[in-house]
């Protein structure tokens, strides 16, 4: 940890965030005040609080200061992020097979920073033991449909977690978990630089931009491959349907199904939709029957007209009341 050059800065004066103290002496207080003591716990939950010190990247990139506008650096240069963890409780998530998340060596951690990668977790927990695997649960159902892109060309860029994400950390052996639960307070820092971590920011966007413009030949091949599989599946479906058609069921009936391709849903079912109301409305009357031939027709028409008059009258009254309510009569 000491290998990295760090400046311990922190904000002393909350009332005036524009003044930032660079004082070295108070710097360690942020995480290191109770250095050596066990981690604090959130009462009645069993969750331990893991403070991680996060440094502004402009602190590390000294080359940025060459930029004229980098003189604006009013933001907190150091801040603390709080993760919370405890041992994995298999009852909470009954679906999880205990072989995937064995209770005795799995740690449940929550409120991860959005840019968390396996490398970051390794960095924090390597002191406890070897980590077998990490399962992120970043994606929530509220994620939009086109963001859960599968098989996208963008695969390989860094996945971002949503704020407050959770993860399961499975240690190689139960000792790792025990060590983790007995972690003591000390300074832990977040920022790490590693060639293996895909970049963020401008580099990442450039990368994405390029990836979306991949070689058309390769893209074409992928599309062809997909379509080949798709056609095959369609064939299969068709065959199955075909097969079912001529099979009498247990009562000896043969199900008659349409062969028309067009009215079949994506899943092969048929939907019958009614004609839309406004289409019907706009249809020209087909037969021009006389509307004022019989007496009852004329009587009907009179009745309708009266009703319409009454309706209009009511409408007017309402309109007037509305206008009055909105106090629309003040000319100045």
């Amino acid at each position: 940890m000491g290998s990295k050059k760090k400046k311990n800065k922190h904000q002393q004066n909350d009332k005036n965030p524009h003044i930032i103290s660079n004082s070295e002496s108070s710097g360690d207080n942020i995480c290191g005040e109770n250095s050596g003591q066990p981690l604090e716990e959130i009462p009645k939950t069993g969750f331990k609080i893991l403070p991680i010190e996060i440094e502004s990247i402009s602190n590390q990139n000294d080359n940025l200061s060459a930029n004229p506008s980098s003189s604006i650096k009013h933001h907190p240069l150091v801040s603390i992020h709080y993760c919370y963890f405890k041992s994995h409780d298999p009852r909470i998530n009954t679906r999880d097979n205990s072989t995937i998340l064995p209770a005795e060596r799995t740690l449940f951690i929550t409120n991860l920073p959005v840019d968390t990668t396996e490398h970051h977790i390794q960095n924090i927990f390597e002191e406890c033991g070897i980590i077998d695997r990490i399962l992120f649960h970043g994606k929530k159902k509220k994620q939009k449909f086109n963001e859960t892109a599968e098989n996208s060309v963008l695969e390989g860029s860094r996945n971002l977690l949503i704020p407050g994400s959770t993860a399961h950390i499975v240690f190689k052996d139960s000792e790792g978990l025990t060590n983790a639960l007995n972690m003591v307070q000390k300074k832990r820092i977040w920022n790490i630089r590693d060639q293996d971590i895909p970049p963020l920011g401008l580099k990442r966007w450039l990368q994405e931009y390029q990836k979306l413009r991949t070689d058309p030949n390769k893209l074409g091949a992928q599309v062809d491959e997909y379509m080949r599989k798709f056609e095959e599946a369609e064939q299969e479906k068709h065959k199955a349907l075909e097969a079912r058609r001529n099979q009498p069921d247990e009562d000896g009936f043969i199900l008659v199904t349409g062969t028309g391709k067009r009215n079949i849903n994506t899943d092969g079912t048929i939907t019958v939709t009614a004609v839309k109301a406004d289409v019907v409305k706009n249809l020209k009357p087909k037969n021009k029957e006389l509307v004022d031939f019989y007496r009852f027709q004329m009587r009907e028409a009179k009745r309708e007209k009266l009703a319409e008059l009454r309706k209009k009258f009511e409408d007017d009254k309402r309109k007037i009341a509305d206008l009055k309510a909105a106090r629309r009569f003040k000319p100045y």
Partner: peptide, 20 residues
Amino acid sequence: KAVVLEIERLGEGFVTGIEV
């Protein structure tokens, strides 16, 4: 404060400063 720093990391190489 942590969010501000997250925002900064997301805009790496692009953000020159964040004024709180």
